[in-house]
């Protein structure tokens, strides 16, 4: 059985005349440990798909089976728990909280667990070491370069041992050199720990790292 199974997923935004059919029936399955790139023109519905996968957006029609369970039966707090434990998000503009230090940013998902303060710090430190940012843990995001910020975001996505990484243009704000660096880090960590990786990207160089490329056109798989 696949880790993720989507059957005829549709998503509409708005109502009446201003209705937007962002997704028009997506059917696909993704195996555990697979690395998948999602590509397509701007506005074709990539982010929408990723948000639906990660429980930060609902679907209008269709079926979403995650690890054998029907997602439509999940309660809001179960979904929050999945966002916390199962999914790790990485987005283009990093989604870091400027008010918080690097280590506090990384610890954010741990705040929604029952760990002690000590355990949280230890976990954050470990993961920061893995992404090579140990020295920066006490600085604020505004003092970091783009590549460093993205590595903080990756650390945060990984800190709670997420099994599915959802990345929306993770290298969109980075130059090609840094992109390479970040992607190698990404692949290393995810292959080592058998994580499922779903990356939305415009960049064919990024997609090349993945096992499979899914192309979306106008809300449907091409």
């Amino acid at each position: 059985m696949s880790m993720i199974e989507l059957k005829g997923i549709k998503k509409d935004y708005g109502k009446g005349d201003s209705i937007v059919h962002a997704l028009r029936g997506i059917t696909l399955s993704i195996e555990e440990g697979e690395a998948v790139a999602i590509m397509g023109t701007s506005g074709c519905g990539k982010s929408t798909l990723l948000n639906i996968l990660g429980f930060i957006d609902g679907l209008s029609e269709g079926e979403y089976i995650l690890d054998g369970k029907d997602v439509s039966k999940f309660t809001k707090s179960e979904m929050a728990k999945y966002r916390n434990r199962v999914f790790g998000f990485v987005v283009q503009d990093f989604a870091l909280v400027s008010r918080l230090r690097v280590d506090e940013n990384v610890m954010l998902p741990l705040e929604y667990t029952k760990l002690t303060k000590k355990e949280k710090y230890k976990m954050a430190e470990n993961i920061l070491e893995k992404v090579g940012l140990s020295e920066k843990k006490n600085t604020y995001p505004s003092n970091l370069s783009g590549g460093q910020k993205q590595r903080v975001a990756i650390a945060r996505a990984l800190v709670n041992n997420a099994s599915i990484l959802l990345c929306d243009e993770p290298t969109g704000a980075l130059d090609s050199e840094t992109t390479k660096e970040v992607m190698e880090l990404f692949m290393k960590i995810s292959k080592e720990n058998k994580k499922t990786l779903i990356i939305v990207t415009h960049d064919i160089e990024v997609a090349k790292y993945c096992d499979r490329i899914i192309r979306i056109e106008d809300g449907m798989i091409a």
Partner: peptide, 16 residues
């Protein structure tokens, strides 16, 4: 708002 959204991404419930 942005910070709240990031928290939701990290597992916060709306009630949080």
């Amino acid at each position: 708002a942005y910070e709240y959204a990031v928290n939701i991404l990290c597992g916060a419930k709306l009630t949080d």
